[in-house]
Simulated assay, not measured.
Amino acid sequence: MLKLIPFGFVFMILPESIPLLVMYVPGMVPGTCLKDSQVQKTREKLDKVRQKMTANVLKSAEKVDGIAPADFLSLTKFQRIAKHYAYDFDLIRIDRPHLASYCRFMGINNIGTQGMLRKRLEKYMNYINEDDKLLLKENVDELNIKELSHAVEERGMRSIDQDEENMRRGLKYWLSLTHPANPENTIPVGLLVFSRMFLLNANYKGKQ
């Protein structure tokens, strides 16, 4: 939906440019307008970016006491971290370089002022939140592999070289974070995105 407005504008004004967009700027084109091979190529490119960012974050985390990557795989520990660092991960308090990194990791435009990046990330995460509500109604187990891959990619998780069951478990875990039984345990958006870098290559075995 986020891509439909600019894509629709281009379609009405410069329809002859659509083939060029599909070939050279697939990120601007809605997924339904792309070939499977183009979608795969875009995901592989983004995966390389995410892997590099993840490696840097994990290396930096080794110097921080009190937080380990495994903590983000435990719902209870994750919620405990969220309560402790909620203030620091409020998007209004995150500086421009980090907001740009968050946007880049989530696959959205990371160019602009601090305010622009914050609003862009908020809009994207609001869209994801609404989609989460639909997933909770539809049941993750009923998604086909194409729908599942799209859902995990949009949420900063991997579909490249991933076991289908691991993706389903990862998506279910995401939903438990965004829509917990107790609303007071909801994870701040900034921390939710940041956690994707710790969990990019996570094994969700045992998660329901």
Score class of each variant (00 low, 15 high):
150 H>S: 00
182 N>T: 02
170 G>Y: 04
97 P>D: 11
111 I>V: 04
134 L>T: 03
189 V>L: 09
181 A>H: 00
90 D>S: 15
88 D>I: 05
200 L>G: 01
124 Y>T: 05
174 W>H: 14
154 E>F: 07
182 N>I: 14
153 E>I: 04
193 V>L: 01
154 E>C: 14
154 E>Y: 07
125 M>G: 03
132 D>W: 08
164 E>C: 07
101 S>M: 13
191 L>V: 08
179 H>Q: 08
125 M>A: 03
115 G>D: 01
127 Y>I: 05
115 G>A: 13
144 N>A: 06
179 H>Y: 03
130 E>R: 15
194 F>R: 11
140 V>S: 05
117 L>S: 10
125 M>Y: 01
124 Y>G: 02
107 G>H: 04
198 F>I: 06
155 R>L: 08
133 K>T: 15
207 K>E: 11
150 H>G: 00
200 L>K: 11
113 T>E: 13
156 G>Q: 03
153 E>F: 03
126 N>T: 06
184 E>M: 08
182 N>H: 07
110 N>T: 07
109 N>M: 13
125 M>N: 01
115 G>I: 13
102 Y>W: 02
108 I>R: 06
187 I>V: 14
176 S>G: 07
155 R>A: 02
101 S>L: 11
111 I>P: 00
109 N>Y: 13
189 V>Q: 09
97 P>I: 13
165 E>T: 12
149 S>L: 05
155 R>F: 03
185 N>S: 08
140 V>M: 02
103 C>A: 13
131 D>W: 08
116 M>S: 08
167 M>N: 01
97 P>C: 11
149 S>Y: 05
166 N>K: 12
96 R>Q: 13
164 E>T: 05
